[in-house]
Amino acid sequence: MNLDDREELRRRIENDLLDSLDEELELEIEDRTYDLNAEGDAVARQESHAQRISYFRELFRLQGELVKLQNWVAATKQKAVIIFEGRDAAGKGGVIKRITQRLNPRVCRVVALPAPNDRERTQWYFQRYVAHLPAAGELVLFDRSWYNRAGVERVMGFCTDEEYDEFFRSAPEFERMLVRSGIKVIKYWFSITDDEQHLRFLGRIHDPLKQWKLSPMDLESRRRWEDYTRVKETMLDHTHIAEAPWWVVPADMKKQARLNCIHHLLSQFPYEEVERSEVVLPARVRNEDYIRHPVPQSMIVPQLY
């Protein structure tokens, strides 16, 4: 790798690390946090700052629409399952975080199941997922789902050929059954390139706050990129059904992927703003015999900041 390539890689990793900080108050992060050793870099930083402002403005607008969607779902007793699938480091968790950031967890909840235990492995394959399906007035976001069988389980040999074939017979019928029962099923596949996944894995390696995300399974998935491509194509071919189609989100650009996915998700519901009665803050009751006792100093959290 020549000097120019190394410098480009350094810049991309730096941008990826910066992006990990971009939650809701990152606009306060000053550009001088990073050394600007050239006028061109300074211009690029200025442009990047403007793009971040534009991103946050649109993100906040879409999150406002998500609040309207949440209120409509609760008021009209809708039920929906939203599935997020994709390669490791594709950005599923990032978009889920932005969707749920301002929503009521009693209405919109996230399901991220660990590997099945010994008992669950003897159950009907879909059984442990059924327990997490929504009741009326709920949105459930699956951060990975029953499609584990069509992906990691197939590639890593965690299921037999018979179990794999049965999944493709059962999954479409299972989803049709959910839809007939009144549950809306929306499925997203986050698609990133080989080069982008490589970059994001390097970012995790060099970021102490992200290293926990790298498991031995993640590293093995990197080695087996082509195997995952083949099973992904098979999965989309067998489970892209009219009742619950797949939607592919190009995700090499994280911020654009988040905005595009949220915008598309909103378009899948005929929601409208729910009228609410005006909230009036009641006056606090004050009793003459009320005495507030001081908290012992030994119980106070040290005021270091």
Results as ranks from 00 to 15, higher is better:
residue 63 Q to E: 11
residue 71 N to E: 04
residue 221 S to E: 08
residue 184 K to S: 15
residue 295 V to R: 15
residue 263 H to C: 13
residue 281 L to S: 06
residue 132 H to T: 07
residue 280 V to A: 00
residue 59 L to R: 09
residue 99 I to L: 08
residue 40 G to I: 08
residue 233 E to Q: 03
residue 208 P to M: 08
residue 46 Q to R: 11
residue 237 D to T: 15
residue 143 D to H: 08
residue 182 G to Y: 09
residue 190 F to R: 11
residue 231 V to C: 15
residue 48 S to Y: 12
residue 137 G to P: 00
residue 298 S to E: 13
residue 114 P to K: 10
residue 295 V to H: 14
residue 90 A to G: 13
residue 12 R to K: 13
residue 46 Q to V: 11
residue 250 P to I: 14
residue 290 Y to G: 06
residue 167 F to A: 00
residue 263 H to G: 13
residue 170 S to G: 03
residue 100 T to V: 13
residue 116 P to Q: 09
residue 201 F to D: 09
residue 31 D to C: 10
residue 243 E to W: 12
residue 250 P to F: 07
residue 37 N to R: 14
residue 162 E to G: 11
residue 84 F to I: 01
residue 47 E to I: 06
residue 267 S to H: 07
residue 116 P to L: 12
residue 150 A to Q: 00
residue 292 R to P: 07
residue 263 H to L: 10
residue 282 P to C: 00
residue 196 E to C: 15
residue 272 E to P: 02
residue 271 Y to C: 02
residue 69 L to H: 01
residue 165 D to E: 05
residue 49 H to I: 06
residue 162 E to Y: 00
residue 28 E to S: 12
residue 88 D to K: 09
residue 146 W to F: 07
residue 170 S to A: 14
residue 79 K to F: 05
residue 173 E to N: 11
residue 133 L to Q: 05
residue 46 Q to T: 09
residue 213 K to R: 07
residue 82 I to N: 00
residue 21 L to Q: 08
residue 288 E to T: 05
residue 99 I to Y: 00
residue 189 W to C: 03
residue 154 R to F: 00
residue 211 Q to D: 10
residue 63 Q to M: 14
residue 224 R to G: 04
residue 73 V to R: 03
residue 268 Q to E: 06
residue 257 A to G: 12
residue 46 Q to F: 10
residue 223 R to M: 08
residue 268 Q to T: 04
residue 172 P to G: 12
residue 101 Q to N: 14
residue 219 L to Y: 13
residue 291 I to P: 03
residue 6 R to F: 05
residue 261 C to K: 05
residue 164 Y to S: 15
residue 47 E to S: 08
residue 279 V to N: 01
residue 73 V to L: 04
residue 154 R to A: 01
residue 208 P to K: 14
residue 96 I to M: 10
